[in-house]
Design a protein around this nucleic acid. Structure first.
Lengths: 237, 237
DNA sequence: CACATCTCTTGAACGCGTTCAAGTAGAGGC
DNA sequence: GCCTCTACTTGAACGCGTTCAAGAGATGTG
């Protein structure tokens, strides 16, 4: 409470001082919530406990966050940032597509590992299509775009040559595949989630092979068919 | 395919008269619940409302069903049976693999269509790995096995020739793909879930093509690699 | 018949996420 | 100084899923 940063982002009608106070409370509640989630798990952390621990009233938490689930969004954002950070090394080192993709995926699992025990609990929240926590929701689009950007880096920083049409679509496709890996990971009960690691190690070479084949003229029609399907399915008309 | 009553709570072996009474109440509660789910949606239906409408105490519902979510299992079982029924015609008519697969998938969507509006709501429940409603859970294995059996029928009743190794794995793989389609369907907000239909129509020929190619000697190593990966990932060691 | 045993039923009570009418406080205008 | 406006804060209250001690009712046993 002592740390008052008056570095004002001076936009909006309310005075900067007031604004700062609100933002501070918001951060306090979020930090407290994430800490308790980590310590006790999501389901075992009550809104009352968060409020009490943060020294505010329950209603105050609802002034800043629409629901308990909305607090998870903060968790997502932080994990996304950590994934980016954990990926920088392999993205700076290697130029092989397979190595880059593999490295990024393992980095993602590394980052999420500490939260595996209760990832399922709030994966539940994310699964509901109408939930703002859904990876496909409008609210998640900043985190989603940032995640897709990592996979774009994987491709663009690599020496892999591939069909230009595919190149356009591939970042999003890899992200979709990554969501699949995460889904598998959530369900993976093997010690240390070994099976997820094996899935990555087994799948990446296959993707690498397929991506390499995308330039072969013989496979052009097949590729077009697949890309056409994706385009058809994506459209909402 | 005899529909064995899936007793949620195994209460010893009482006399047949007593058993009948209990079973009757159980059915009454389940029927009432499913009706209210259909009429109001899952989230809007309270346990109190179910109990009141069924003319029992709220605690009574909990004597037969461990939780509100457990009531959905009954919904699953019924839908599973309906899917089988809706599939019989195409499975009796056509011998082409692609037509059979396509027919079965469309039949599955047909059956689920009336529930799309709130499918997402309890899909949420199914998504939690520890939930008995998860399609991968032990509790769901009867429904799962029955569903896989449909896809086994798709293959075995077809004229398609395919690699014997693949033949063994394919029913489960098709079921997994079907789960993916259902996942897509749950998120599909297009009118009448048209995009899901397009996804099926676009994907089936691709699968058909791949399955056909599985017998080519040139592709043997690749197939082996994929099957090996599946085996590796499946094992929990 | 009385008694014990077991299945089945009850509804008050608990803790949860969430809401909301009622307040508080601090900046700007007079 | 005082007033107003509004961002912010409060906590009792609501309805929910769920639990559980208590009891009702049928069945088996002497």
């Amino acid at each position: 409470m002592t740390n008052v940063t008056t570095a004002a982002a001076d936009h909006g009608s309310p005075g900067p001082a007031r604004r700062a106070r609100g933002e501070q409370t918001r951060q306090l509640i979020l930090e407290t919530a994430l800490r308790l989630f980590r310590e006790r798990g999501y389901g075992e952390t009550t809104m009352r406990a968060i409020a009490k621990e943060a020294g505010v009233a329950v209603g105050n938490a609802y002034y800043y966050f629409d629901s308990k689930e909305h607090l998870i969004q903060g968790f997502y954002d932080r994990n996304q940032t950590e994934h980016r950070t954990a990926s920088t090394e392999v993205l700076a080192t290697s130029t092989e597509f397979a190595a880059r993709l593999r490295g990024v995926m393992h980095a993602g699992i590394d980052v999420n590992e500490p939260y595996h025990s209760f990832a399922g609990t709030f994966f539940k929240s994310a699964a509901e299509p109408s939930s703002p926590l859904s990876p496909f929701s409008r609210e998640s689009s900043p985190a989603r775009d940032a995640s897709i950007a990592i996979f774009r880096d994987v491709i663009e920083g690599s020496s892999a040559k591939l069909d230009p049409e595919l190149r356009k679509e591939l970042p999003e496709l890899l992200w979709l595949g990554w969501m699949g890996v995460i889904l598998f990971w959530v369900y993976d009960k093997s010690p240390g989630q070994r099976r997820t690691r094996k899935l990555i190690d087994g799948t990446v070479p296959l993707i690498d092979r397929l991506v390499g084949l995308s330039r072969l003229r013989v496979l052009r029609p097949a590729l077009r068919q697949v890309l056409g399907l994706i385009e058809t399915v994506r459209r909402d008309d």
